[in-house]
Amino acid sequence: MLDSVVTQIKYIFSQRSLINQFTRREISNRYKGSYLGMIWSFITPLMMLTIYTFVFSVIFQARWGTTGETSKVEFALILFTGLIVFNVFSEVVSSAPNLIIANSNYVKKVIFPLEILPIVALGSALFQTLISYLILLLAILVLTGTFYWTALLFPIIILPLLLISLGLAWFLASLGVYIRDIGQIISIAVPALMFMSPIFYPISSIPEEFQFIYSLNPITYVVEDMRRAIIWGQQPNWSWLIIEFFVGLVIAVLGYIWFKKTRKGFADVL
C-alpha cells in the first residue's frame, strides 16, 4: 500500500511541468480580456474586505469577543484572515464538480493525466490566496505597525486544509461526471459552511452545547491558528495541526484512489 502511494506521488511529481503550464494558463484565463488584468487579483480581496467590514462592523456593530473592545481596524484584519482561509477551500471545492466536464476533450486522450486537473485548480486558488496573504501582511504592518515572525508559519498552518481541499476535489471531480446535480449541491453547501465556520465571529461566542459541531469542521482549526499566528503573534495549536495534517493526508489519498478507480468510466458517460 505504502509503495503504491509513493509511486503515485512520484508520478504526479513527474507531471510538474504540465501542472505548472496548466496552472499558469488557468490564472491567465481568469483575467483574460479584462482591462485591468492581473490587477483584479489585488482589487477583488480589497473590495470584499471593505464590504464585509462595513456590513459587520458599521451596520451590525459587530465586535470581536465578548468585551467589545476590538477596533474596526482589528476587526477588519481578523475577518480578512478568516476569509483568506475559507476562500481557498471554497474556490477549489466549488469548481471541482465541473472540472472533468469542462475538460471533456482530454478524457478520451489516454495519455493525458486527468488527475492533475484538481491540482491545477488548487494551484490557481493558491495563487490568489498568496496575493491576499501579502495584502494582509502589508495591512497589518501599515495599520498596526507590527509584524510577528509567527506569520511565516502560514504555509505550515494552511497545508492540512490544502490536502483536504485536494482530496475533496478529486472525489467531487469524479462524482460530478456521474451525478450532475452534485454541482448544485456544492453551491448550496459551501456558503452554508462559511457561516458555520468561525469567520465572522469567534468560536468563544458559540454556545457550549453546539461547539462539538464546530470541532468537526476542519476549517475551524485553520482559521483559529491563522489568526493566532498572523494577528496576535502566537504559535498555532501544534497538537491539532499535526492531527489535521494526517486527516488531510488520508482524505487526499482516499480522494485520489477514488478518482483513479472511477476515471475508467468517464469516456462512456461523457
Rank of each mutant, 00 (worst) to 15 (best):
D3C: 07
I9A: 12
I9F: 09
K10W: 10
I12L: 12
Q15P: 02
Q15R: 15
S17C: 04
S28V: 05
R30Q: 15
Y31A: 11
S34K: 05
P45C: 05
L46A: 15
I51F: 14
Y52V: 07
F54Y: 15
V58A: 14
R63H: 08
G65A: 13
T66D: 13
T67Y: 09
E69Y: 10
S71F: 07
S71T: 09
A76P: 05
T81A: 08
L83C: 06
L83F: 05
I84H: 00
V85Q: 02
N87M: 02
S90I: 05
S90D: 14
S95E: 07
A96S: 13
N103C: 05
N103F: 10
N105R: 09
V110N: 10
V120I: 15
L122W: 03
L122S: 06
F127K: 02
T129G: 12
Y133C: 02
L134R: 03
I135F: 02
L138F: 07
A139P: 08
L143E: 02
G145N: 10
T146F: 09
F147P: 01
A151M: 08
S165Y: 08
G167D: 06
S174A: 15
L175K: 04
I185P: 01
I188P: 00
V190M: 02
P191V: 06
A192D: 05
A192C: 12
F195R: 09
F195C: 10
F195A: 04
M196N: 04
P198V: 12
P198C: 04
F200D: 12
P202G: 14
P202K: 06
E208N: 08
E208T: 11
F210R: 11
Q211L: 11
F212R: 11
Y214H: 03
L216V: 05
P218W: 00
M226K: 00
M226N: 03
R228M: 06
I230Y: 00
Q234G: 04
W240K: 14
L241K: 02
L241H: 05
A252M: 15
V253C: 11
V253I: 13
Y256L: 14
K261T: 08
K261V: 09
L270R: 03
